[in-house]
Design a protein around this nucleic acid. Structure first.
Lengths: 282, 282
DNA sequence: TAAATAATGAATTTAAATTTCATTATTATA
DNA sequence: TATAATAATGAAATTTAAATTCATTATTTA
């Protein structure tokens, strides 16, 4: 716990009722407060604006602005890992939500570092490097990552395929061989479509890479290579927001790694494409 | 040299005379500026207050307040000068790259806070709330955000459309009316396809929301509502990685805001869909 | 119970940020 | 070269945020 927050906690019992309410709100939503005005904070915590000012003085800070600055500094120093989004509030304005989204997404990406296994990652890069074809598949919220990956790897010169359509995929997979890679994306690791296609691809000899959470799910168990995303809060309100960020971070890593490797070879083509794009830019 | 100061240095030659004067003052007195008002800074640097505001926008930051905050952060974070990706190294292992990707993505999301204008955001949410149809369009790296948005807003019960195909979009837009919203996604704000479709949609009376960087681009100028993403480093090696993260963060915010609003109404349907999904889960 | 004190928010004032608008300078075009 | 179009600029007005004042209510003390 950092110094300002600590300080607030300490003096909380000595504060008046209204000021205590502010203190509690601040402690509960520290990352939201630095972007608020006195008016907003007064409404959120159910006191008057005047009391906000008094609160600042009570905890020994001269102005509301200084208070916000101090709080912000506090938060950056102790990168709070409040991954949960339970702090959503009826009164939240779009701007408040914006800052909460920033916070959640940042936390999600940060926590990617915890779940990734470097050996598995190395294996995945190795497999993709030598792949003739790469097929990505994800449904629902995970389809975003699949679409993104397909685009990125096409840019790198790969024969890269994805589709939201299960039956389309059924027609793609029979043509896979040992040289190919099937990347299955599913947060839960239980999605039936994804599982069935993964098994099918494996039967054709393709290497199955799973981008999924570390769990006892069938996808986790059966995949050849596991790239784990962290178990981020799955609140219904935020839906798949944070998990999609983690999936994309994994995709980005694969992309960067391959780019890094094929490097110079692709680079010239890349520049060509860029200048061509400039002139053609539709 | 930290990133914001670096950025100012870079754009300095492109700025107008008055704005250049501000830039020089800031570079010369970085530690003084965060505590100044627009009036003070205008006097110190010998320009008008209005020009101060324009200067902030010129360097891609949405308000003077955000500028001061960004500058302050810049000055305190002397050690983390990894913001640029030039630190890519031939010897980097996939795992090294993974951590760099995490860093870049995190920074990109963080800097979203600088460029967003709360009023524009409120306007966007308002427009979408009352929309009958929402059309998303982005090409290249920006298509990911469009696809993601389309999925999210469909889940919220909207008639939500996107396609990668310009000609398909040409057949969609004629049916738009004043009640509809067209969301154009383009980092540069110059993509021809996006511009043409945006103008077409506006001609049909739809409200055009642009998710783009704060710049003098045609898309920025012509859009009815501007949701600005920060000017993240556009290194060819990382391509559109960070800008896609910022676009998604904006999409997430819109989604959360609308969700928050329609809230209870959709919630029941949402739960129904979930349990249905459990049983149907393919 | 009455006086003193403390707590509070509504209303006001002050100050800061932002926008608008008219003016001037610059550039492109006939 | 003259003229229109565009961009740059600051003065003034507007909007927004912060801070103060003051009247009201609750609480404590004698």
């Amino acid at each position: 716990m950092s110094s300002l927050m600590q300080k607030i906690k300490e003096v909380l019992p000595q504060l008046s009722e209204a000021e205590e309410r502010i203190g509690k709100y601040v402690l509960g939503n520290p990352e939201a407060v630095p972007h608020m005005t006195t008016k907003e904070l007064s409404q959120k915590s159910g006191v008057s604006e005047a009391t906000i000012i008094r609160f600042c003085k009570s905890i020994g800070i001269g102005s509301f602005k200084s208070f916000k600055l101090a709080l912000m500094k506090d938060l950056t120093l102790t990168d709070t890992n409040l991954t949960d989004f339970s702090v959503l509030d009826k009164k939240d304005s779009p701007y408040d939500l914006f800052h909460k989204v920033i916070h959640v997404n940042k936390s999600a990406i940060e926590s990617c570092a915890d779940s990734m296994d470097r050996k598995e990652l190395a294996k995945a890069v190795e497999a993709i490097q030598h792949a003739k074809k790469i097929v990505f598949f994800g449904v629902g919220g995970s389809s975003t990552a699949a679409v993104d990956a397909q685009y990125k790897f096409t840019k790198l010169g790969y024969h890269s395929i994805t589709s939201l359509d299960f039956h389309y995929m059924l027609s793609v997979i029979p043509h896979l061989t040992e040289n190919d890679v099937f990347v299955a994306i599913s947060t839960s690791g239980k999605t039936k479509d994804v599982l069935e296609l993964t098994r099918f691809a494996q039967k054709k000899g393709a290497t199955a890479i799973a981008i999924t959470t570390l769990s006892k799910s069938p996808l986790y168990k059966e995949a050849d290579i596991r790239l784990c995303t962290p178990n981020v809060e799955q609140d219904f309100r935020i839906g798949s927001i944070p998990s999609r960020m983690t999936q994309l971070t994994v995709i980005d890593t694969l992309y960067m790694s391959i780019f890094h490797h094929v490097g110079e070879k692709v680079l010239q083509q890349y520049y060509d494409a860029r200048s061509e794009m400039e002139s053609l830019r539709r």
